[in-house]
Every structure is written in C-alpha cells, then in structure tokens.
C-alpha cells in the first residue's frame, strides 16, 4: 500500500520490532499504525462484527488503528512511534482481559 521514497541517510535509523512474534524492520519516528498498514494492510477486527479495519485517519480521531502494543490493548497505534524491541499485535475482536 505504501513505500518510502527515502533511503540512505535521508531515511534515518532503522529499528527492529516484534510484530506478532516476527522480527520486522521499521523506521525510527514512524508510527505503529504506519508499520501495520505497510506490513499487513489492516490493524484489527471490530468487536461488533469481526470486520477487518485499517488505520483510517492516522491522527487519533477514528480509533480504527487500535492494537496491542507491549501488552497494552486498545492502544491508538497512530499516536505511538515505533521503538526498538517493541512488541506489536493486531487486536482481533473485543479485547481480552488477562485474569
């Protein structure tokens, strides 16, 4: 869906994050929503009808990019810059609670 025109020095440092158990290279300052969009093209399944959704507004007002980031459910991934070692999962359906 998206591919960067930047490379080399312009691109800035790369960071490695864990996306659903796999190591994925991301860009410093890119948001998690951006990474999900590039990697899967979707972010979650809705809790009401389990329909796939992708980040829609990228600026914190649609909540379609909710993801599980470092174990924290329902995080607005468009407001979350990637950081090295971060663990990211898509949120499928109603959030689970850890008892």
């Amino acid at each position: 869906m998206f591919k960067s025109v930047l490379d080399g020095a312009e691109r800035g440092p790369a960071v490695t994050v864990m996306v659903e158990g796999q190591e994925v290279e991301a860009w410093e300052d890119e948001t998690v929503a951006s990474l999900l969009l590039r990697h899967f093209g979707t972010a979650r399944l809705t809790p009401v009808s389990q329909s796939p959704r992708a980040p829609y507004c990228m600026m914190g007002v649609c909540f379609d990019c909710l993801a599980v980031i470092d174990g924290k459910w329902s995080t607005q991934s468009c407001l979350e810059p990637v950081r090295a070692g971060m663990s990211i999962e898509r949120q499928n359906g109603a959030r689970e609670v850890e008892q």
Binding site: F2, S4, V5, E10, T31, S34, L37, R38, C78
Partner: peptide, 11 residues
C-alpha cells in the same frame, strides 16, 4: 501523514 512521516508514497 504517511508522506510526512517517512516519505511513504501510495502504491
């Protein structure tokens, strides 16, 4: 916003 945050171009 994708463009301004990493130069991401639509494919």
């Amino acid at each position: 916003i994708m463009l301004k945050s990493g130069g991401f171009m639509p494919q």
